Each structure stands twice: as structure tokens, then as C-alpha cells.
Simulated scan of single mutants.
Amino acid sequence: MPNGSEQFNAIWCKNDEERSAVWGWARDDFDKRQNELQTQGFRLKKLNAFVLPNGREHFNAIWCKNNEERPAVWGWARNDFDKHQEELQAQGFRLEELNAFVLPNGREHFNAIWCKSNEEKPAVWGWARDDFDKHQEELQAQGFRLEELNTFVLPNGREHFNAIWCKNNEERPTVWGWTRADFDKQQAELQTQGYSLLRISAYVP
């Protein structure tokens, strides 16, 4: 982007749930806000980050008020995230939100939210396109459908995929890595068939 400014994507819905949200917040400000809301009974529902040309990460987040135990991490290095995921998985937690961003040093950092569930929810992160495509095909055949999907790009120009699946019989068309023109056409066709967007994200190859 010529001016290096951030651009936002958003989806709204009407409900009576008590929510709080921030966007484009620096790490220190976000950390402080998270601590305040946590003590007030709010839990992270959605979380992602982006990096501006100055190399600083900024956070977008949505909280909702509930008593559910929802561990969350942000800006974690891959090794630390892998270890924490393994520990929480053993305690019965499943990934609910998962995305990554890349700092100027070329290393990916992960944001994630878990919730306690007996539901089988396979997840992958940092997978190359070919590996992701194959895994998606295998899980699709087993009755799993994509629930979360996002991509980050490393300095070598290769895209890497993060994804969470859940098992259901719902028909959920999905695409990834599509150009704008192809996406617009597919969206228009699916809209006429009664489909509405459930998740959407973008990346720059």
C-alpha cells in the first residue's frame, strides 16, 4: 500500500450480547485493556494482529462477557505456541481462534484462543500450500468442514496456512488464494444460491 496505512475488514451482526472491541492498538495498550476487561468478566472472542511498515505490531480484538474459561495468547513465537497448544490440548481445550503475523525479522508470531470442548477440531498452522491442500481434501472426505482459515507470508514470498476444522454436515463452500476478480464472481454466484459469508480474510503474496 503506497502510504503504508492499515485497512480494515469487518463483519457485524445484531445481538444483545455485551461486547467490547479495539482495533489498531499497540501491544502495551492492548495488554492493559485485556487485563482490565478480564477482571470485569470479559473473555477474548476474536483476536488478530498486523504489522505496520515501522515494524510494530498492532492488535484488533473483540471481547464478550461470560464465565467460560478461554485461555488466549498473542505474539507468541512458534516453539512457545506449539508447546502451549500441546499442554492445553491435553487438558481438553480446543483451538477456537488462530492466526499469525510476521515481524521484520522474518519470524512468524501466533495469536490464539482456546475453549474447553469435547468436539473433535483438527488444526494446523504454518503449513505450506501443497500440504494444506492435501490435508483439507483428506479431512473433507472424513466429514470435517473448515471453521477458521487465514494465511501469512514469509520473506521468501511463500504463503503459509493456519486452519481449524469442525465436524458437521453443513455445506460450506470454501476458497483460498483466489484473486479478487475470481472471488467477487464466486461470491455473487453463492449469494444467489442463499449462501452468506461466514469468515473472510486476505493476504498479500
Score class of each variant (00 low, 15 high):
residue 1 M to P: 07
residue 5 S to N: 15
residue 6 E to T: 03
residue 7 Q to W: 15
residue 9 N to R: 14
residue 19 R to I: 11
residue 20 S to W: 13
residue 20 S to T: 13
residue 22 V to C: 09
residue 25 W to Y: 12
residue 28 D to G: 02
residue 32 K to M: 09
residue 35 N to D: 14
residue 38 Q to K: 15
residue 38 Q to E: 15
residue 43 R to L: 13
residue 48 N to D: 15
residue 49 A to Q: 09
residue 49 A to I: 06
residue 49 A to F: 07
residue 50 F to W: 12
residue 50 F to E: 08
residue 52 L to A: 09
residue 61 A to T: 10
residue 63 W to N: 07
residue 66 N to L: 05
residue 68 E to K: 10
residue 69 E to D: 13
residue 69 E to A: 10
residue 75 G to R: 07
residue 76 W to C: 00
residue 77 A to G: 03
residue 81 F to Q: 02
residue 85 Q to W: 06
residue 86 E to A: 14
residue 88 L to Y: 12
residue 88 L to H: 06
residue 89 Q to K: 10
residue 91 Q to V: 05
residue 92 G to E: 11
residue 93 F to M: 01
residue 93 F to T: 01
residue 96 E to Q: 08
residue 96 E to K: 13
residue 101 F to K: 03
residue 101 F to C: 07
residue 105 N to G: 06
residue 109 H to I: 11
residue 109 H to N: 05
residue 112 A to I: 05
residue 112 A to P: 06
residue 116 K to V: 08
residue 117 S to Q: 05
residue 120 E to Q: 04
residue 123 A to C: 09
residue 125 W to R: 10
residue 129 R to I: 06
residue 133 D to Y: 01
residue 133 D to G: 02
residue 133 D to V: 09
residue 133 D to I: 06
residue 135 H to Q: 06
residue 135 H to G: 01
residue 139 L to A: 05
residue 139 L to K: 02
residue 142 Q to E: 13
residue 145 R to V: 07
residue 149 L to H: 07
residue 151 T to M: 12
residue 152 F to I: 01
residue 153 V to R: 06
residue 156 N to F: 11
residue 161 F to N: 04
residue 161 F to C: 03
residue 161 F to E: 00
residue 162 N to S: 11
residue 162 N to H: 11
residue 163 A to S: 05
residue 165 W to I: 00
residue 165 W to A: 00
residue 167 K to W: 02
residue 169 N to P: 01
residue 171 E to S: 01
residue 171 E to T: 12
residue 172 R to M: 04
residue 173 P to Y: 14
residue 174 T to L: 12
residue 177 G to H: 07
residue 179 T to L: 08
residue 180 R to S: 11
residue 181 A to M: 08
residue 182 D to M: 06
residue 185 K to C: 10
residue 187 Q to Y: 15
residue 187 Q to I: 11
residue 187 Q to M: 11
residue 189 E to S: 07
residue 192 T to K: 02
residue 195 Y to N: 02
residue 195 Y to E: 02
residue 199 R to L: 13
residue 204 V to I: 13
